[in-house]
Structure formats: C-alpha cells, structure tokens
Amino acid sequence: MSQAVEKITEYHDLDGAEMLRVSDLHAFYGESHILHGVDFDVKRGELVTLLGRNGAGRSTTLKAIMNMVGRRTGSIVINGNETLAMKAHRIPRLGIGYCPEERGIFASLDVEENLLLPPTVRSGGMSLDEIYAMFPNLYERRRSQGTRLSGGEQQMLAMARILRTGARLLLLDEITEGLAPVIVQALGEVLVKLKSRGMTIVLVEQNFRFAAPLADRHFVMDHGRIVEEISAAELPSRRDELNSMLGV
C-alpha cells in the first residue's frame, strides 16, 4: 500500500516569480455555479487575504485550488504548473498545504499521529521538534485524541500539520474563527514567523483587524468574483471603502 504515497514531485523555487495565478476560475457544486471568473495572483513570499462576506466564494476559491469542488473551468497555475487537469492528490505535491475551515482534526488519531499524517510533499519542512517549539501546547498534549483539544489547540494542530510537509504555499481558511483573542494573537505571531521563513500564504479571513497588519495585499470577493484589490500601502486611505464592501 506504500504506493498510496507517491514519490515527491521535483520542484524548483523560482525567486520573485508568481507562486499562484488564478485566471477566470469558475467552480460548480453540482448544478450551482459558485465562482464566476476569479482572477488573482500571489507572488512568492507574499501574504494575501481573500476578504468578503459569507458566501462570497472565498472558501470555495481555496477548495477549487485544491480540486475539492465539483467542476472547475479556467486556469490555476501553481509555481508554473497548470493544475486544472490534475488529480486532487497530486496538487499538494506541488508544495501546497491546505488548512480547512472546519480544521479537519481526525478524531481517530492522537495529536502526534495527526501531526505526522500528511505525507511530505517537499524537502525542507519543519521538523517535529521545531513544530513543538513553535506550538508548545501540542507537545504537552501529543498523546491526546485530536478532537479532545480546545478549539485553539485544534487550530494550532491543523496549521502545524501542514508545516511539517515542506509546503511553501499555505492556504488557510478562517483560522481565527471562534477563537479567544489571546489565541488569535498567538496565531498572528505564527504567521509572521512563517512569512519570515519565506512561506507564501493565502489567508481567508473574516477578522479583518487580524489580517490587516499581516497582509501585503487584500483581495475583496463578492458573488464569486474578485471585485477589488487593495495593497497594504493603500489600506489607510481606503479603509472606509473596504468597510462598506465588507458590510462591517
């Protein structure tokens, strides 16, 4: 059964290049048409956010990149590879880590098994020791059943799990949802560390105050499209405009 984990895809860093380019992406769940031509790009080492109201298509955009929705059309280029025709299990092997909104901690596995579960997709991932140094709570609870952790610890676990794999592009869906402010702050510090390690991050966030100081660029989504792009520099002058778009 070891074939279930296939060999690591050869992969070369292209400095300063585009890590991800999504063009005219449409996605469908059965008959329902969810994404209506999404266009955006993410450069290596950048942290971008996908902002928008509930149902704007932010989570679906991440899922579509991972080939977890029904049908997709358009183009998704990851590090120079067109992935639209790729099987779902091949996409992570381009060096992508996906952290789902519902966290996806496995109840039948303990914390350490959860951490070790995702196969290595690239060399250069964090070691178990480094991960435990970054998330000390997880070390203390490494023998606990995954779903017995607190919400914050589960979120830490869901993130830590994809850092081990060597992924260089992280797709993080609503990682601060429902968490206490002190945990949200800790997650912010983790993101800063990951960025300084050169990770490229796409953050789907509801909590704009969390995302604002971290991101290089913000993409605002509405009705399954990107409707606005705002760089970190433009943010102070366009704050009111953004607030009205997000309905806050």
Binding site: Q3, N67, M68, I91, Y98, P100, G104, L117
Partner: peptide, 11 residues
C-alpha cells in the same frame, strides 16, 4: 475525511 486526505496528497 477522505477529501482532506486527498488535499494532503494521499491517493
């Protein structure tokens, strides 16, 4: 959760 396992790169 088979879908998430696919997203981790498991066939």
């Amino acid at each position: 959760n088979p879908a998430l396992m696919q997203a981790f790169g498991v066939n």
